[in-house]
Each structure stands twice: as C-alpha cells, then as structure tokens.
Amino acid sequence: MAEPVGLRGSAIEWLKERTSDGLEPLTRDDILDFAFQGAPFALQSTQQGIRKPRGFEAALSFQTVYRSPGQKRPYEDDIGADGLIRYAWRGDDPNQPENLGLRRAMELRLPLIWFVGVAMKPARFQVIAPVYIVREEIEHKRFAMAPVEEIDMLPEMMAGSVMEESLRRYLRRETKVRLHQPVFRSTVLTAYENRCAVCSLAHPQLLDAAHIVPDREELGIASVVNGMALCKIHHAAFDSYFLGIRPDHVVQIRKDLLDEVDGPMLRYGLQELHGKKLMALPKRYTERPRPDLLESAFDRFRSATVSDVA
C-alpha cells in the first residue's frame, strides 16, 4: 500500500504525547500501541535499523541500538560541529533499499522518527521526532540530519557543508535540547531505577539527571558515568556546593550548614545525610559514576566550601 495521508504526522504527535514531549523513554511494547485509523501500525523496525513499510516511497523511522558505556555501536551516529546528526548508510551500497528509503525522505523533505536506545532488559528508546535529512555525504557513506520542526527548516541547511556560524550555533543548541538532554536524562534515570542517588526519592517527575562535571567542560562527557539521578532539592544543593559526594560515594554537607539551625528540611534533607553512603546506584558497575569525575567535582566542592565559609 502507498503511505496513508496523515499517518506520519499522526505518529509523531502520538509519540510526543506518549513521551511527554520527548522526555520519557518507551519500550518496544509501548511503541506497538500506535494505531492509525483504528488499525495497529508498526512504527519501529525489529530487525533492521531503518523502517520503510511495504509500499512506502520513503523511510518512516530509524533507530540506534543501546550500548553500555565503552561499547561500540554497530553503526556510529556522530554529532558534527555544525550540530547535524550523522547517520551511517546501511552497508556500502548506496542503492541498498534502506539507504534508498532515507534518500527519498530527504528528497521529499519528509519528517522521520529516530528511536535512540537508552537501556536494555527491557529495551527502552528515547524518541526524537521530527528529524529531517538535510543532505547526503556520499564520500562518508552517511546522511546529515537536523532534529528540528518543519517550520525551522531553513534553505541554508540544504545548501552543502558551509553554513553561517549563527545557523551552526542554532543547530547545536537544538541538538542539545532535543537530543542530548533527553537521552542523557533517560539513560541516567533508567540506570538509577528512577531513584534519587542521595535520598532514594522514587518519583521521576521530581528527579533530574545531574551532570557530575558540567558538560561544557573537558571532562564533562555526555554519558551515564558522568551523571547521577538527583531529586530537585539535592540537584540544586549539589550544583550550589551545599552538598558534595566523595569518590567513595559518601555524602558530605558544607560545614557551616551543619552548624546552622533551621526547619526540618535542612535537618532531614541535608544535615542528617552527612557522612552517609549514597542510597541508590546503578546495578551495573559500568554505569556507575566514574571515580575521576567524582573526585574532580568533590575537589571543587571543597574549594567552594573553603571560600564560602571564609
């Protein structure tokens, strides 16, 4: 059958609603719940990386499988300095059917759905949609894509590899907001089983994925090993150096706060945590905070504590 009119847009809107506008990951079973005009319709491929339904002129979706920190993906998806996502061809043949499906989506300027793996057992995927292919880089056997709404697609994106710095900054910002931040959040919260590392609060709506070392710094890698699930109070306390975490996962509270007398939030929310071990950590050791990153953050906490108290 030919692609039904309206299916692509309906699928993207349904996914936005199911994921709270891209914040929450979905399992394969969740994604299978989609129906169009009363009939179930598969949005995701279970075998290949690219989903081009029978009879469709262009691809509908593509996916990136989850790999634990340090593991290499079978297909690398890179983010360039221009903010564009690079998605490798399937194989080396430019006329391989899945590559043809992505190329046709580019030619027709159709929106795509990107399922980014963020966990296994069960497999969970962050949904990035819409995504538009802006060009094909044949010499590198890959496509360049932008995670933007149709209204934000600019002719300059389609005009080869040279873009104004203002456009590159815009794309880098959009990629961070629409891709990096949601994927980082889902990966971290899944690893911590939706519990605050410091107090074990188990309400995802009240949890953040906190960077141990800010992602703008050299050590601040966008990986679960540079993240912790923290409730909003303890995230703010960590970022403001009210609270530090030693490399051995022991919580430290700023000395002047330990001597302060205030209400129950200060007492139970901060003071009584001093010297206690973290209450939640990932079960997989490969997903736990990297010791050198914790040490860097704790050194900063100690320096800020000295200067603040002085």
Rank of each mutant, 00 (worst) to 15 (best):
V116L: 09
A209S: 09
P289M: 10
S200D: 12
Y241W: 12
G263C: 05
M265Y: 06
H274D: 15
R8E: 07
A146S: 08
L294R: 04
R173V: 06
V183S: 01
L278G: 02
A11T: 07
R290F: 07
V261F: 00
E218K: 13
N95S: 09
T27N: 11
M158T: 10
N226V: 04
N194M: 13
L243D: 03
P291G: 05
E287F: 02
D292R: 13
F62I: 05
E13Y: 04
L112M: 05
I151V: 15
R267M: 12
A88I: 04
Q44I: 14
E17P: 00
R254P: 00
T190I: 12
G227S: 05
L293R: 13
V306S: 02
T175Y: 15
T286D: 14
R216M: 09
A42Q: 15
A81W: 03
V306D: 05
I212D: 00
D208F: 06
F301L: 09
L171R: 06
A59G: 12
S166K: 15
F242D: 11
V134C: 04
L43H: 03
S161P: 15
L207V: 03
A129T: 15
I253V: 15
M158P: 00
L23M: 12
H235Y: 07
P97H: 07
L270N: 06
L167F: 11
T19V: 06
R246P: 00
E17C: 08
A11F: 04
S240A: 11
Y66I: 09
R104K: 14
R288N: 07
Y241H: 14
V65Q: 12
